[in-house]
Design a protein around this nucleic acid. Structure first.
Lengths: 370, 370
DNA sequence: TTGAAAGCGCTAACAC
DNA sequence: GTGTTAGCGCTTTCAA
């Protein structure tokens, strides 16, 4: 069916070795021979099978990518970055998604390992306590985590604790004092934990009382009554919500709206992820931005570094820390309103500002200068 | 490094043939032997290399997926559907993106073909006039197109012309008479062409004058002044815009907003794609929905059918048409306002409705009954 | 029931 | 500069 190197050799009248050389080291064969071989290749529309090649050389030029889902643009953006570099460097990508399911994570790793991927780029729910990763450390292919925020393993992410801290400080700078954190059903993830820690830190530092993260069902059409009660009832209701991701923020905004709550007049909202989509909302979603594409690219580069050094010598590169932290951004948006009736807790005891955006910008400047 | 079948054989004290049989046809080996082999496999943490296996059996269980981009959730959703089925059926996916670039399309096909994928699922800019697809028809792997709306090739999509027609009729039913179609920079795609054809048909049928599609730069922060002029100037300005996709619609809404145009009061907007995200906007985006996930799944199933029948006998299945059309939906949203000052052109000369949504629902019923 | 051996497509020694 | 040959990990006759 598909022509093999043998067919080419027969057609050209040379041995398969010569054909192989003509393909892989053209300068070592007679130009005339080369021409004939090339003609044969063209005539037969031959393309070398990577299978035989890989079998021989132990190099597959294959990288596995394991993501929780592609429904969240965060991961799609990462993948986009990875794909760009992979294509440019002649690697192929094998993709599997897990929906955060442990069984599927295991299955994906098994499958990709069977395929002899040279490396793995992945995002898991909780990196620290992940037994599969220990396995990989021992004898699996090299890997780099994306988004998982841990110093214990090779990873690329933003500083989730710091980012959440910055974001919540911004809310506080806008005069908010009753700030609640909302988390998706994946409250157990390392990121969610760290984001909550940042929230707690910012609150305490401002002399405010942090609360446990409120879990919200992501996929529900409406906000659960119990959640809505938390958000809207009584005088002690929060004036601002820190949502652990943008998709969640959008769902919450819709839920509030249906409950006749206006954003940001009745409730300020801060998301996390900095989805491009958020800027198209009205009001534009305020969010802590994570450079998803860059995270993908950085993960790729880390992985390549690891692979190259593993190939060169057995000693892994130890002069760089395992985890790489990329800078986050604070995207001010129109979903945050300043609370006027209480004095804002901002260090620069300067002038009051007219618009929420002005205040936000100053708040950020203050944070950045920190 | 990684254990091979030989290591297992040596460890278990049998030949590699027996090990192979123990793995692939357990019932043909002595239970005692089987147990020993399995023990060896477990002890060495052996997993058969698909490379050797594929080399032998000519089956890679590998499917290539080629998409323009993952930044548009439309494609991410398709991929999600494909991935689900692939995982369930023990296939692996190799992904490449093209950014609609012809060179990259060619390169992707070459690469995947080299990898000996058993099939290809892809979306191209324009399927009808695509030379690479002719090549695939001749001697490439089997393929199925997604989203490309053509009867000439194996494909899965919605009926773009009909969908656009339905959508524009809905706008007309809301009393709009000056309706403009906006297209992204990819106005040359088969889909864009058909959507415009549907628009033209709906307009003409209502005795209105269709206009050429107005091209809008997708990535620009602001709408181009020339575009804005078209949309906002004079008494003849359009009252409704049919955007050839949701992302474009969102960009347009933002641009209009910046120009102090309110949606839907000053301009009604209808998108195309039915992105889940659109429902979270405020106002929720009206859109012609395409079942992206299902399109991915259907493409998968078509491909499997083609592969299976190709394997069974050389004769391809001819009793099903090449292209499969999936039903679209009309998602009414708050971005469409009824125009009160002109009588709505609706067949049911019944009662006037209070809200735009009511009118829309009736309009759809009317269309559906057609 | 098990083993020996051939061969899938290719690369890389080594010989000529 | 070119050919011969071994072997990558596996499946699959064919014999025993």
């Amino acid at each position: 069916m598909t022509p093999t190197i043998k067919d080419v050799a027969a057609y050209a009248g040379f041995s398969i070795a010569t054909v192989s050389r003509a393909i892989n080291a053209p300068h070592t064969v007679n130009p005339l021979t080369l021409a004939k071989v090339r003609e044969a290749i063209a005539a037969l529309n031959f393309r070398p099978s990577p299978l035989g090649r890989q079998l021989r050389s132990e190099r597959t030029r294959l990288i596995g990518v394991i993501l929780p889902t592609l429904s969240n643009p965060v991961f799609a953006e990462c993948l986009q970055g990875i794909d760009e570099l992979a294509a440019a460097q002649g690697y192929r990508l094998m993709l599997m998604t897990t929906q955060y399911d442990a069984d599927r994570e295991r299955h994906a790793i098994e499958t990709l390992r069977e395929q002899r991927v040279e490396g793995l780029i992945l995002t898991v729910a909780d990196a620290d306590t992940h037994p599969l990763l220990d396995e990989l450390d021992r004898d699996g292919p090299l890997y780099v985590l994306m988004h998982n925020d841990t110093v214990r393993r090779p990873s690329v992410s933003v500083d989730n604790r710091q980012a959440a801290y910055d974001g919540v400080r911004m809310l506080i700078a806008h005069g908010h004092r009753r700030i609640l954190m909302l988390a998706g059903t994946l409250a157990a993830s390392d990121r969610a934990r760290l984001r909550h820690a940042g929230y707690v830190q910012a609150m305490q530092q401002a002399g405010l009382t942090p609360a446990p993260a409120l879990e919200v069902d992501f996929n529900a059409e409406e906000l659960a009554p119990s959640v809505l009660a938390h958000l809207t009832n009584g005088a002690a209701r929060p004036t601002a919500l820190f949502c652990s991701n943008d998709l969640l923020a959008m769902v919450v905004i819709r839920g509030l709206r249906r409950a006749r709550f206006q954003v940001p007049r009745d409730m300020s909202i801060l998301g996390f992820d900095g989805l491009a989509m958020g800027e198209l909302l009205a009001p534009a979603l305020a969010s802590i931005g994570s450079p998803n594409r860059d995270i993908g690219c950085a993960a790729w580069e880390r992985l390549m570094t690891r692979i190259d050094s593993a190939r060169a010598n057995a000693a892994p590169v130890q002069n760089q820390s395992l985890s790489l932290t990329l800078p986050h951004t604070l995207r001010t948006g129109a979903t945050i309103a300043a609370i006027a009736h209480e004095p804002a807790i901002v260090n620069d005891a300067g002038s009051r500002h007219d618009s929420a955006d002005d205040a936000a910008i100053h708040a950020i400047d203050a944070l950045r200068a920190r």
